[in-house]
Every structure is written in C-alpha cells, then in structure tokens.
Design a protein around this nucleic acid. Structure first.
Lengths: 173, 173
DNA sequence: TATTGTTATACTCTATAACTATA
DNA sequence: TATAGTTATAGAGTATAACAATA
C-alpha cells in the first residue's frame, strides 16, 4: 500500500479579522468579523496547531515523516528496549492504533520489533541503523527549517515562554 | 540490525541523569524520558489543544455543544445574513462538511437556513431565539468555567500573551 | 486470571468529485 | 459558464471489544 499520497493543500483558510465593522449586510463582499472567536483560546490554539503541523509536513516532505511518526522515532531512540505498550501510551496512542503505525515504520526499515526474551508477549522496539540516520536528518530539518521559522516569528524568548505555557496546559490543565 | 540486549529481569537502577544512561533497562517500571519531544512546539501544542478541547466539552456537557458548533453559533450571531459558504470558509470548514453540521444545529432549532431573495441559490444563516438563548448560556459557561480555569492556571497576563502568540502563528506562520 | 500484541470494527474529521438549481 | 448547497465517498484519526499467546 502507499504510505503517503501527495497530499494537496486545498483546505480552507480562515478569513482575516476586519475591525471596525458593523453588522454585515446580506450579500456584501466584506470579510466577516470573528468577534469573540478570536479571544477563545481553544479556537486559536486549534488554528495554530493546524498551521504548525502543516509546516512540519512541508519541512519533512523529503523524509515522508508525519509529526506522529517523528514523535515515535524520537521516543524509541531516547528509550531503547521499551515495548509497544509503553511507547504508545506515553504518546497517547492506543495500542490497537499503534500496530499499523509500527507496520509502516518497520516496512520502511526505520524501526524493528524484537520479541523480548524476558516476556515473550512483548515486542521490544529499537531504531534500525537506517532509522537512526533518518531521524538524525529529520532532527536537522526540524531545527533548521521548522523550529527556526517559529523562532523568527516569535523570537527565542517568546518561543520559550510559549512552550512553557503550553506544557503547563498539557500537564496541569 | 544487531541489538545488544542482555537485560535481565531484575535490572539495575540507573538514575535518570540524561547523560549517564544509554540503554533503558527492559521491563523496568520507570517512566519514559520524553527527551527532545518536550521541546517540540508541535508536539506540546497538540497535547495542549487536546486538553483544552476536552475541558471545553466537559464544561459544555449540559448544552451538548462541541467547540466547532460553538464557533459556528458565535460567528453566525456576529455576522447575521451571511450564507453557508461564507460562514464555513471563515471557520476553515469545507462546504460539504458544513451541511451535516448545520442539519444538526437546525434540527435542534439553534439556527435556521433562509433562502436568500437576492440569490436563490444561497442559504442565509441566522440564529433562532432558542439559538441565541443557548449561545448566551454557552458563553457564560465558557467564561466562568473554561476560560476562567485557564486564567487560574496561567494568570491573566500570561493568558493574554499566549493568545497573542498563538494568533500570530495562526495568522502569519 | 491478567497482560501484550493484534484484528475487527465503528465513529468522527477531513478531503474531493459530481450532481441540482440557480445565476 | 460559474456558483451555492448538496450527495456520495474515501481517507485519516481515534475509540472499544475480543482473541491468541504468554505470564
């Protein structure tokens, strides 16, 4: 099966905010007013997340890695010798859904399942040599193209502050 | 692909000094190290977004409104007299997918489609009286339960800074 | 009996093509 | 011809139940 299709970007893009307007008359070509929507953290958070993932995919086009796949490779590299359940649950992926994902990565020779000698029910996960090489290239692409662009947009200290607040929400909310 | 793994059941107990450990002991009950993952903005952004939506749904359980439905009601209230295409595209919803969403809101008597007299192809969207009342209650719930909790977690000025950075990403990235 | 990996399945979101009725 | 709303459909992502092998 095809691992990925040449995903065209034809999704809808949101209109810009137009300040200082009153109720729109029917049929007018004017931009809509977002109103309170632009103050809803959840709304803005979702839009930002879509933009960031979109850019991530563009930056990783040459390696054909999705954000989820990248996170799996990173976690397996950092935690060699762990089984599927441990890696999946840490990433918030349900075990049944992790199977096809691993099938994909394994078919591309990026990682491998190894039957554990301690507990023959478990599959220990490790990166292959190719997986390590691809991950190294991926990290470089992410750092120089993706995260660097975020840095340009926000500034390093703001980017760090943003990361801190998002982590706080992710961990304590 | 060789993997040197000789892990015994009773493994050694390496401290989580990020430096001194290469192989994680197999089967150890230790928590995994996120490593570079916790510095990936996209990863943290996604986790935070899931948490925020989850909390939103809990706060709105009594009104049975999803974040997407809430955003539609807000936008229709702020922009009465606009048609489906305008509302949907502003929210980044594709027109075909907007149909079922509107069917739902209309069946609950929260909003109504009105055939335009100017262009009989268009459906003008408006909130019903019940829709306005429900939206008012929803706004109050969001403000007092949802956004207020974000405020408690981050502090008002941090929350505002977070919103600003996310908006910048959503609009300029 | 409980757990690991797996299959099957279903439901939501998102995306594209094509139809209809108007323009 | 082009556009608004719609239908059908396909693909991801996510969720639960259940089964075989193993503990």
């Amino acid at each position: 099966m095809t691992v990925s299709k040449t995903a065209e970007k034809s999704s809808e893009k949101p209109a810009d905010t137009a300040k200082g307007r009153k109720d729109a008359a029917e049929g007018s070509g004017e931009a809509l007013q977002l109103g309170e929507l632009s103050e809803q953290l959840g709304y803005v958070l979702k839009r930002a997340q879509l933009k960031v993932f979109e850019n991530f995919l563009r930056c990783m086009a040459s390696l054909q890695l999705t954000p989820a796949q990248f996170s799996v490779l990173l976690l397996v590299e950092k935690n060699p010798g762990r089984n599927q359940t441990e890696i999946a649950s840490t990433l918030g992926i349900l075990r049944p859904n992790f199977v096809a994902m691993l099938d994909n990565l394994e078919s591309r020779d990026l990682c491998a399942r190894i039957r554990s000698t301690n507990d023959r029910r478990s599959h220990i996960l490790v990166l292959t040599d190719k997986g390590k090489a691809v991950l190294a290239r991926a990290k470089k692409l992410v750092a120089t193209k993706h995260e660097a662009r975020l840095n340009d947009l926000l500034g390093p200290s703001n980017r760090e502050a943003l990361l801190g607040m998002l982590s706080k929400i992710a961990n304590e909310f």
